[in-house]
Design a protein around this nucleic acid. Structure first.
Lengths: 229, 229, 229, 229
DNA sequence: TATGAATGAGAGTTCATTCAT
DNA sequence: TATGAATGAACTCTCATTCAT
């Protein structure tokens, strides 16, 4: 009791330890991210991650169960940030459609431009690694799909009707488009500055596609021959 | 007559050898394909490929330079068949738009349904393997992009104007959509029977997107507010 | 005092580690030496070296880059000891000639008799292995040649003249003689006890050869028609 | 009988076959020689030997039991030619000493200059290959030693006494010298033109050594202090 | 006799993971 | 908690030799 009164060392120490632990966790994770990006997951050795993070090999295993675990935690972190950017975009704007557009632009501006490594890990390095990594990757992408679908359903509702099947399909399509976009301008060519104009064109394309689809649902503009057949 | 019988053998033998060589080449390639799909490229051992193809390990190396070479040849074969199906689709139909639609349907009907292994190798197992494999994968996808772009330009021309930039972007978008489609219904879920209805909806979406884009170019239907801004 | 006990451990541990590292290095090297001798370099497997040294295969690669590196380090060690014995011999004795003789005897007594494995590795197992090993072997032999040449030049100088060309040739001759001697009585027949009398005769032969050559240079006994022209 | 009378085809064919067989045997052997020299025995593949000899792999095995056998036959051939040159030298000249000198010169002029490949195979590529090859190599070198010893004994006899032990040692010494000579000017440096002057000096050295040794035996030219102690 | 496709044992090397300090 | 030396299973590729044609 008197001891606690003087400096509360137990709590303070515990807090500091916690902070240091967190810090080290992220140092290692960031080192792994950098290396997985530059050399690929398979070619990166735990020893290299340790060196890059300025810790010993054993220390890496103190924070992560295995090399695979390192990748999974990385995916989780990426997923979190990804959804955050996306969610932020969906919240800005007056009409649902405007919000939708903002999300797309936000993704291309804020996220990808800054996080090429994340894109590389999500779309290249985590592909085909192991069953568990596949599952995680799939969960992330489906989660994003659901977010997008929700936004689309909101737009649909505003137009008077909702079609979950179509919303799901459109969400899937949009995700596919953006993945390819990212692949082209970040992974294959590292030219993020070219993304913005392409996103403009892409959003036109997507907008047209959605209009066509929404038109069939709520608005009496009617008669796009192909649709719905 | 008897003379023919004695002089031909050389040719006959040479021919038969060639046939057998080709046959064995494909036996090994098919064995690799099956295993790469089921267990993944990395986890598949050359020994297993050999056993599956009922040859010795050394024989595999008689036909392929390395394990990586096996994957590259596989990609080449897949690319060839892929483009064949796509090209066939593009040729059927009266109007460019109809031909375009046919290509999409053809892909989903003839190719993907029958060739799940191909899709898995192209979209999952060949990702992140090595620099050379990446290069090959990229070349294939860009090639398909060009094919698609050409088809789109044809449609554009019919509508009175052409916009290469837009055509390229749209081609990219379409490819992205189809890749995600394949991923979902063939790789993550092996439910090829669900593809067709989804492709229907997807083609509506794409059709709408293209109309919107074409509208801006040639037809005076005008006024899709979002587009072109 | 107690403080010293707590502050020193770091140094002590570091020292002990260093000692253990050195010890293990030599354990492995010695194991390799034994096996290379008994079974030959090519037929010895790294696994065997590891077993002989009572470590794991991976540990061998922790200390040596490759199997070839193992041989090269061995050669370096042998070269070091070889020159040490030779140098020691060259230092004992009053006249240059006596010193020269001592070096020869020293070689045959101290070195070869005790280091049959070294002789085998230097003269048999390291021959024809690889470019780099050849280079190292050559460097060692040329180094010994230079040492011998220096001793001969000293003798020559005492006799009033020096002839580098002749000294070089004689050094080469002497080395050749001793190599063959070693080959015969250590590699082909393991009878080191027979070396000493032969070395006696050989030294007579060499002495005569050198006298004849020196005679042409310094002493006016002259007139061996062929020599020196 | 009448058949024999017409063309004696059986004999003629048999002879021609024998000739062709011999020719092919030598073609293969020569191809192996060239490759063993250039790339080393270990690195040379049977396939390469076959290609160089313009036959199929199987054909090589029709003429030689194994890769090792190829090397052994090569050694035999080299030994044969080696002894021939040596023997020829020993026969030319009036006095035994002159004949001896001729042999040494002959070796350096006729044999080595023309047969660098032989030297490389005998002194480098056949070292450390296998037990059997070692045995053959040893036999060859001992054979040459005996030839040399015989020549030395002849000289000794002319001088009135013979000492087998000394003759053997001197023969060994001479062989050692020439091997090193060959190593230096043919294997390490391919400069055969430098051999001749060196051989001159070497023969002086050897001459002096032999004189010293002979002096002790028979002739009263005497009194090289060191010798014989 | 000649061919050359097929064989398959074999070996060097790597690297994720552990654990004594 | 941190360290990093030690581990050893795993895997690709080679190449001498064989044998059906």
């Amino acid at each position: 009791m008197p001891k606690q009164a003087t400096t509360q060392p137990a709590d303070v120490t515990a807090q500091r330890r916690r902070r240091e632990r967190d810090k080290r966790y992220h140092t290692i994770l960031t080192a792994a991210e950098r290396l997985f990006c530059d050399q690929g997951y398979t070619k990166t050795k735990i020893q290299e991650v340790a060196t890059e993070a300025e810790v010993a090999v054993g220390t890496v295993y103190l924070y992560f169960r295995s090399k695979e675990d390192l990748l999974i935690r990385l995916l989780d972190k990426i997923a979190f940030e990804f959804r955050a950017v996306l969610g932020e975009g969906f919240r800005k704007g007056k009409s649902p459609l405007e919000r939708f557009r903002n999300a797309g632009l936000g993704l291309s501006q804020d996220f990808w431009r800054l996080n090429r490594p994340h894109v590389i890990i999500l779309f290249r390095e985590s592909v085909g690694v192991s069953q568990e990594v596949q599952a995680r990757r799939r969960a992330i992408i489906e989660q994003i799909n659901e977010d997008t679908e929700a936004a689309i359903l909101e737009i649909m509702r505003e137009h008077g009707r909702e079609d979950r099947l179509m919303a799901d399909t459109v969400a899937m399509a949009i995700e596919g488009i953006f993945e390819r976009l990212a692949y082209r301008y970040l992974i294959w060519n590292d030219r993020p500055e070219e993304i913005e104009p392409v996103v403009g064109r892409v959003m036109d394309f997507i907008g047209g596609g959605m209009m066509s689809v929404l038109g069939n649902l709520g608005e009496p503009e009617g008669a796009e021959g192909e649709s719905g057949k």
